[in-house]
């Protein structure tokens, strides 16, 4: 009986899990958290490439998922993932406001551990340069790029999360790419 429940809860839809979480179901929370926590981290790390900061965002996002699940309304057409992205985005903005310091040193998470040694060194160098260039972008341009390029969301989804129009996201994306190209061209071998 318990196994049957365990099997079914792992396969449950995001919407069903959200309803269960709103009712205080910790097991449903665990399943949904495991499903999305790397997504939270991926967004947070690319916004603020310090592992500790990014994990703080993930932890806070999970706590809010638990405490605010009842605010998500089923049947309104809003996807759970979009709601969770918005949660993470807001936390990243809050984190930026709390920590006014400029991030200069990056952690090594941008290196692919499966790559060969020389490739890893090259990736590390390129990753550090790209990470720093991303940090130099205005915040909203960076968010638009993270959501669309790294997370693969559509412009409409990104606009929904960021609370702006699709045209607004498109403008942010074009400016972000142009600024990155200009900055990264200074570094030999990056572009």
């Amino acid at each position: 009986m318990k196994a049957e429940k365990a099997l079914s809860i792992e396969d449950a839809s995001d919407e069903d899990l959200m309803a269960d979480i709103a009712g205080g179901d910790r097991e449903a929370f665990r399943v949904l958290a495991e499903r999305y926590m790397n997504l939270f981290y991926s967004v947070a790390f690319r916004m603020y490439p310090q592992r500790a900061d990014a994990e703080d965002v993930v932890q806070e996002a999970l706590l809010r998922l638990w405490s605010k699940a009842h605010l998500w309304k089923a049947g309104t057409g809003a996807a759970v993932s979009t709601w969770l992205y918005r949660l993470t985005y807001n936390l990243c903005v809050d984190q930026k406001r709390r920590n006014k310091h400029t991030v200069t040193d990056l952690d090594d998470d941008y290196v692919d551990p499966d790559a060969a040694a020389d490739q890893r060194i090259q990736d590390k160098q390129t990753g550090a340069i790209v990470g720093k260039a991303l940090q130099n972008l205005p915040e909203r341009q960076r968010v638009a790029l993270v959501l669309c390029h790294y997370q693969g969301l559509s412009n409409a989804e990104a606009a929904d999360i960021m609370g702006t129009s699709v045209k607004g996201v498109e403008g942010l994306l074009v400016r972000a790419r142009k600024a990155l190209q200009a900055e990264l061209k200074q570094y030999k071998g990056v572009l």
Binding site: R26, F29, R30, A33, E34, M37, N38, F40, Y41, S42, F45, R46, A54, E55, V58, Q59, L62, L63, W66, D109, Y110, V111, D112, D123, T126, G127, I129, V130, G131, L134, L145, H149, Y150, R177, L180, Q181, L184, V190, L191
Partner: peptide, 27 residues
């Protein structure tokens, strides 16, 4: 530019983050 962006990887979150949260919510 896309290739350069793709070389900036995020890695994975430490799973102990979820353990801490589970403890904090009483699970």
């Amino acid at each position: 530019l896309d290739d350069a962006l793709d070389r900036f990887k995020a890695g994975s979150v430490d799973l102990s983050v979820l353990d801490d949260v589970m403890v904090r919510i009483g699970g």
